[in-house]
Design a protein around this nucleic acid. Structure first.
Length: 555
RNA sequence: GCGAGCGUAGUGUAGUGGUUAUCACCGGGCGUUGCCAACGCCUGAACCCGGGUUCGAGUCCCGGCGCUCGCACCA
């Protein structure tokens, strides 16, 4: 209850001070869409930048920026067209909407795989009871797609497309360029921060479920046969709360979790470590951070392992990051759909020699004799041992039998040398919900205290993500203090990456309070002495302590 | 999507059919003070949108949009 009230006060402040605002409000608002306001906008871009910098440290990761408008074929290949469509039906009595496949569970081995008309006819045949009212009459099945539809181009030549539901697909489809860039050497990664779109049926809980959201994803391509030797020692000092596959939470190091086989791949563990580092770096309380492994039936069918970073805040434990070992699913899907090769080459330590000593066809004779079947004959023949004698009745895979004469064949004797092989890389994907992370950074930074018996609000943001670095105040807007303060402000604004805010209205205490509320780490005050000797006071947000320093030493 | 509740200045609110829509914080100006939401004076700003009932609607009715919660959905 108290938690609810705190959430109310926090939301009110975020709106009032311009962190987060409902979008398009003067037109009545739009569900699931938010503005980052004059204060939140800066914070968002800082967190995005921080995220990119953090992963760039890996040294083999590049940043991409792919379109949000995505052709139908791309998302069909990725499985999103199928996966993100729900077939809905409505109870004719109580109008409750249900998923057709859910209603038919138990009446079909895999209703999820059925097409629309198959679901429709099965639904009308089985007539399952409505979970809400028990009636058995259902409307026609309609497709509800969670992706935003759009048309690329105008008129009849327009192609169907979607706004992307994740940034990942653009990185998979750029695989060729990435492989070239990294000179054919794995592992490597591509990442991007950007918008994703999901036409949620019921967006809820403020920033937690949005229709347009900020996401940051890394696709890290690895050789599945490479040794699992990622160095996890830098996190040995930080045991983390892990919930493995439905088990009880335990606190242990990533190294131990790998040794016990809870985390199935050391790169997944390493990314969990980097994720932990990033989240705590931007201000997430490590005590309210845990990793939960997806249970087998919860995981996408192709995924080999998946760990979510969950953060506790005003809405309970919320999944904010997913670290998934996706196997070769994505590249393989795009390969199948396009016929393009999306592979990497692995050289063998020693060339592999294969001795072949058997039979093959003599093309000049066998070709005219078997015509269309010649290819099949060749394959079948090459499978036969050296000891085979001809003529021979050879049974082909299609059931036909052909008579192979001695003149149709010749010995096949050769040595094949292979120096390596092509394989489809596996992908480990950390996917961050930036909005959810920003929400929790704010939630964890928001402190309600008292000052002289009055409620006082302090946003203890990490300086690296605070929306404003410095607030500059003239103690009073006269006697040259205003001009000097404005000069200091200008000087700070000209420094690269520094955000300064000038505030000359209200009492000095009020201005400190306003700065504290949006988490400005340092307040600079220009007073009478400043005008005489060029020094100012610098106040620390969290301690309130002030030191005096020369303006020239500020930056 | 269904059900319930709600929608009034920047924020939080009062207002059960009848003057110029309440109060507080808030914002701005001037002055006093001169380092932690100070004081005085002045001042700014709202009934979500559309329709209906009525002599008269912030208030009642209908529809839309939005918010919160529950169910369902979703990661």
């Amino acid at each position: 209850m108290a938690e609810q009230e705190r959430l109310g006060r926090l939301s009110e402040m975020l709106k009032r001070r311009g962190f987060l605002l409902p979008a398009f409000e003067i037109h009545g608002g739009a569900k699931g869409l938010y503005d980052f306001g004059p204060v939140g906008g800066r914070m968002r871009s800082r967190i995005n930048q921080r995220w990119l910098d953090h992963w760039l440290r890996l040294g083999n990761v590049v940043e991409l920026s792919c379109p949000t408008v995505t052709p139908y074929a791309v998302l069909e290949a990725s499985g999103h067209v199928g996966e993100f469509s729900d077939f809905m039906t409505q109870c004719l009595k109580c109008e409750e909407a249900s998923r057709a496949d859910t209603l038919l569970e138990g009446h079909h081995p895999n209703p999820d795989a059925l097409k629309k008309d198959e679901l429709q006819s099965l639904l009308f045949k089985i007539r399952p009871a409505c979970p809400a009212c028990g009636a058995q009459e259902w409307s026609d099945v309609t497709a509800q797609n969670l992706m935003f539809n759009t048309t690329i181009g105008a008129g009849p030549s327009g192609r169907q497309g979607f706004l992307r539901p994740e940034t990942a697909q653009g990185m998979f489809t750029s695989y060729g360029a990435l492989l070239r860039h990294f000179r054919d050497r794995l592992p490597f990664g591509a990442m991007q921060v950007g918008k994703g779109y999901r036409n949620e049926i019921a967006p809820r809980q403020g920033m937690i479920r949005l229709r347009e959201f900020n996401m940051a994803e890394l696709e890290y391509f690895i050789d599945p046969e490479a040794p699992l030797d990622d160095d996890l020692s830098s996190w040995d000092a930080h045991p983390m709360v892990l919930i493995a596959d439905g088990k009880e939470p335990t606190k242990m190091t990533l190294s131990d979790a790998c040794k016990q086989g809870l985390i199935r791949h050391t790169t997944v563990a390493k990314f969990m470590g980097i994720t932990w580092e990033f989240l705590t770096d931007v201000g997430i309380d490590p005590e309210r951070l845990r990793f939960r492994q997806h249970e087998q039936d919860e995981m996408a069918h192709y995924a080999m392992d998946c760990w979510d970073a969950e953060i506790e805040g005003s809405y309970g434990w919320i999944e904010c990051v997913g670290i998934a070992h996706r196997g070769c699913y994505d590249l393989e899907s795009h390969e199948k759909a396009t016929g393009r090769t999306l592979r990497a080459r692995r050289e063998f330590d020693e060339p592999r020699m294969t001795e072949i000593d058997g039979w093959t066809i003599d093309g000049a004779k066998a070709g005219p004799a078997f015509k269309a079947l010649a290819g099949m004959v060749k394959t079948a023949l090459e499978g036969l041992p050296k000891t085979t004698s001809f003529p021979l009745d050879l049974e082909l895979p299609n059931g036909e039998t052909v008579l192979v004469e001695e003149e149709h064949v010749k010995p096949n004797q050769k040595t094949i040398k292979e120096t390596g092989e092509w394989y489809i890389p596996h992908v480990i994907e950390p996917a961050f919900g930036i909005d959810r992370i920003i929400w929790h950074v704010i939630d964890h930074a928001y402190h309600e205290t008292e000052k002289k018996g009055e409620p006082y609000c302090l946003m203890k943001l990490q300086p690296s993500v605070a929306p404003v670095d410095y607030a500059v105040f003239p103690l009073f807007e006269k006697e040259g203090m205003d001009d000097l303060a404005w000069d200091v402000h200008q000087r700070l604004c000209r420094a690269p990456g520094v955000v300064s805010m000038y505030d000359g209205t209200g009492s000095i205490g009020r201005r400190y309070a306003r700065a504290d509320e949006i988490g400005v780490p340092s307040c600079i005050t220009v007073d009478h002495q400043s005008v005489k000797d060029g020094t100012v006071t610098v106040r620390d947000r969290d301690t309130g302590e002030q030191i005096r320093m020369a303006i020239s030493d500020l930056i």
